[in-house]
Design a protein around this nucleic acid. Structure first.
Lengths: 351, 351
DNA sequence: GGTCAGCACTCGGTAGGCTGGAGTGCTCGC
DNA sequence: GCGAGCACTCCAGCCTACCGAGTGCTGACC
């Protein structure tokens, strides 16, 4: 037990190598330049000479944590290097005072609709981290239905409006095949159907909608049946709210220098469903950070994603994330998503 | 009357110069390279030698239509050159067959909510033009209120939900100062207030809301009064629907080669209100195209905006636009916004 | 007077050569 | 095992030369 075997698991590094890796990551995040042994040796937490650092850096490169753009340049971290770095981030994952104050005053001041608030929150998060921020929501799944209403738009078209307890409003169009029966009784029919739906739905989760017994009820009017179908379709369309709020794309663009990379990331961000799925997948895998290929998305090869879930009344219902270059301040990003996720959840729990 | 005075109005060019200018614009749009007299002389619609073209190009430069990046390079169009070009675009402003087919099938196929449809439409327009597309809407102003509802969320918070005839749903939160009277009668109170509001609002335009006599009605409950205030505030917040749908930012990024330009444009596009105002201003000035400084926005110095309004039942209610580099295929963009605007209006008029 | 062939000239982009410096890998003494 | 010393590598920056695209101008021609 005295000296650990040298053939330890590949994710273990001795203290000095870990310090060196950390110094390389932090310096590179800061300067965007390959960092040489001299700079690392000058760092206060590394107490050895540059020659020794060079030896260790060669080892770190052989183990896949660092890479050299070319011979006789400094090293830059690989994705694996970043991974080790974030896995061993300790302590200082809290926001600096100014940022914390900014978050606090934002949530004290913010008001208005859920949607605008989430959009604003994405901009807050972008400002804190200097790159793009994404927020998934609103979380219809766990919200309770407060009101159901059928509103006629045209003789053959109605709108089903469902108000949820979190203030979100879901809507779906309902096609009415008026060619079936009499025809003129439409308005009254709608009211009856609406009342029928209200009776069955209010107080339940939107996700339970599929199990509502309205369809099997022979007394249900055609309109009600159509409405339930429409609502079920809407609930299916939005597996768990594929609304996505993206903010700070300009900052993200500034963080890359290849316009081609910017193009690819923007293209991905326009596919809301893909991004929502990505965020959920990352969280499902138990990760807070996905680096480069870990995202599973080719356009994000040079990107990293930092995510945190947020909860309403104890239930995780959505996520906030930061999308930027792998060369990112992970400590700041982790702290920012954690704090923003927490405050957002608290704010939404209040109603 | 035989020979026109040489001191003609500066927007008149003789036929040959106009052809040369057109050739320069089209070649430059195509290749992004300064175009020399040789290329212009080779164009079929120019029947003179390159030496003559050179003379005319020197004149065009003196008159401000062309510019030279440096001596002994070809010419590129100035903003004034593009302006002349679009002002004298004749005829061929219809979509090619494939694009027209694409638009038709999109509008035949599209369904679902207004919001999703507008977002999809912006992507369609982006695909047609190869750069970013913006759409303002939905146009609440002219829509008629179909339903008003007050839904309680918490004891001190309610949501006012207004359904409009175009399928849009507006909502506003209402703060209830329950500390005034009894306290427990909240639910019933809300229902009464909602009915009261319905009575006064259904069938009217949202913009008339401020003139509803509910406030002056002494019988109105506190909840109703608060709701009217909230609704008025919401109507004011959205002067004419400051919702903006942006699509194809990735294509826009690909159209520029300076990442800095991309950053500035993205930053502008995130300010929805600014963009909505910009579109309206351009249309108010009677323009279809705003080039460079004509936009009045510094970040858009290298951009051009092509806009078309769209109408619902004869009323202009919103606009569709294309935002790209000044080096843009204006004929295609004009045709695309015109057709998409028209089809969108028709589609929305149907309900 | 308008057109155009011819010609000298300009200037940016590219390629090649040189240099300084940052950084490495290795060796060897402590 | 650590670190000073040293030879080596390779990029970035700089200068130079050169090529070619393109210009402006002149003078002849219709």
């Amino acid at each position: 037990m005295a000296a650990p075997d040298r053939a330890v698991t590949p994710t273990m590094l001795d203290d000095r190598k870990a310090s060196i890796l950390r110094a390389v990551v932090e310096e590179y995040v800061h300067t965007a330049q390959p960092v040489g042994s001299g700079h690392v040796a000058a760092a206060p937490e590394v107490a050895v000479s540059s020659a020794t650092v060079r030896n260790d850096m060669a080892t770190l490169e052989a183990e896949g944590y660092l890479a050299q753009p070319h011979t006789s340049a400094g090293r830059i971290p690989t994705d694996a290097g970043y991974r080790y770095y974030v896995d061993h981030l300790t302590g200082r994952m809290s926001l600096d005072r100014a940022s914390a104050q900014q978050v606090r005053s934002f949530f004290d001041r913010t008001h208005g609709e859920l949607e605008r608030m989430l959009a604003d929150t994405s901009r807050l998060l972008s400002g804190l981290t200097g790159t793009a921020a994404v927020i998934t929501g609103p979380p219809q799944q766990t919200a309770v239905v407060r009101s159901v209403q059928l509103v006629g738009l045209t003789p053959t078209l109605a709108l089903l409006v469902v108000v949820l307890s979190n203030g979100a409003v879901e809507k779906a169009t309902v096609e009415l095949d008026g060619d079936g029966g009499g025809g003129e009784g439409g308005e009254a029919d709608l009211a009856v159907a609406g009342a029928h739906l209200s009776e069955h739905l209010v107080g339940r989760h939107l996700s339970e909608l599929a199990t509502v017994p309205a369809l099997s009820d022979p007394q249900a009017s055609p309109a009600a049946q159509a409405a339930v179908l429409a609502a079920a379709r809407a609930a299916d369309d939005d597996p768990d709210g594929d609304h996505l709020y993206v903010g700070g794309t300009d900052r993200m663009a500034g963080a890359f220098d290849a316009v081609e990379t910017v193009r690819e990331v923007l293209g991905l961000l326009e596919q809301q469903l893909v991004v929502v799925t990505l965020l959920r997948d990352v969280l499902d895998r138990g990760l807070q950070v996905a680096i480069g290929a870990e995202t599973g998305m080719a356009p994000l090869a040079e990107c990293a994603l930092v995510v945190a879930p947020y909860e309403i009344e104890g239930e995780p219902v959505g996520s906030v994330g930061v999308l930027g270059p792998t060369r990112m301040d992970y400590a700041q990003a982790l702290a920012a998503v954690a704090v923003v996720g927490q405050r957002l959840g608290r704010r939404l729990s209040e109603g």
